[in-house]
């Protein structure tokens, strides 16, 4: 299926205030790939992701999803294909209750009442938020909001899943849960994260952004082994690839 391909060509984005957030970014992500986009704060990750479903309009360059070039006319179709979880869950939740919020997307897809019910319950169960369905979103904790925000997108069964820092603000258990959920999602997925252990675990491929440009694009393992590259991009190795400080220390105390 060529449907789940994401291709970005010479993308550039300049914000109205003159900030050049993205300069000349190109990559091609094929069907079923799982790709992490990493980079320091302000590297342009969120800006880049928001181009993938047309939330931001490119200053120049193009975005192609499947066989379709992103433009005003193709936007509704592309938004059905690309599910996007924003960095700030407060931006994503706006209905009076969690249930209605998750139902918002499926209702817009024109599904019938019982089908919507089913999808909403399923999506909430998958993120472990079934018990929250009657609550108003603004009364949830940060992590709960995040999980509900993810459910709102899952309920639309997108072909391509795009997430901006999905694990930030989650407790370790919810993080594990999300990771196994992502592992089960066999379509194309793209996410940004500062959780490099998760990246190592879930994404065979990584793209490093630095000051709006692509600094590296390749197998995750190779990238994390390249100390010079990581340092140049203000990044650090995942903990699982660093020497264990606890074990070293305990060895030291034994010596004493």
């Amino acid at each position: 299926m060529s449907h789940h391909i994401v291709e970005v060509k010479n993308l550039q984005h300049v914000y109205p205030d003159g900030t050049i957030a993205i300069k000349d970014v190109s990559f091609r992500i094929t069907h079923g790939e799982s790709v992490a986009i990493i980079g320091a704060n302000g590297a342009g990750k969120s800006s880049l992701l928001q181009h993938l479903n047309g939330c931001l309009e490119a200053t120049s360059g193009e975005v192609i999803i499947g066989d379709t070039r992103l433009s005003k006319g193709t936007l509704p179709d592309i938004r059905r294909t690309v599910g996007m979880v924003f960095q700030n869950p407060d931006d994503q939740l706006f209905m009076p209750t969690v249930f209605e919020d998750v139902a918002f997307g499926p209702l817009n897809l024109g599904l019938s009442g019982s089908e919507v019910d089913l999808r909403v319950r399923e999506a909430l169960e998958r993120v472990g938020a079934g018990h929250l369905s009657a609550k108003p979103p603004y009364l949830l904790s940060g992590g709960e909001k995040k999980r509900v925000a993810i459910a709102t997108v899952l309920a639309m069964s997108p072909d391509i899943l795009v997430m901006d820092e999905p694990t930030s603000g989650l407790d370790p258990y919810a993080r594990r849960q999300l990771m196994s959920l992502l592992r089960e999602f066999h379509h194309t997925k793209i996410f940004t994260s500062h959780d490099l252990d998760m990246v190592l675990d879930l994404c065979p491929r990584t793209i490093i952004l630095y000051e709006g440009g692509v600094m590296a694009d390749g197998p995750t393992r190779d990238i994390f082994l390249n100390d010079a590259l990581l340092a140049a991009c203000r990044l650090e190795k995942p903990f699982s690839m660093q020497e264990c400080p606890v074990c070293n220390k305990s060895a030291d105390t034994k010596k004493l």
Binding site: N88, F94, L107, N108, L109, V153
Partner: peptide, 24 residues
């Protein structure tokens, strides 16, 4: 800005100018 973000999120989930009430 927040209103704009929310509107973006709404459009991202297929909103095309029509609210659907769940209780039919």
């Amino acid at each position: 800005q927040r209103a704009e973000h929310i509107h973006t999120a709404m459009r991202a989930r297929g909103f095309i100018g029509r609210f659907h009430a769940h209780r039919r």
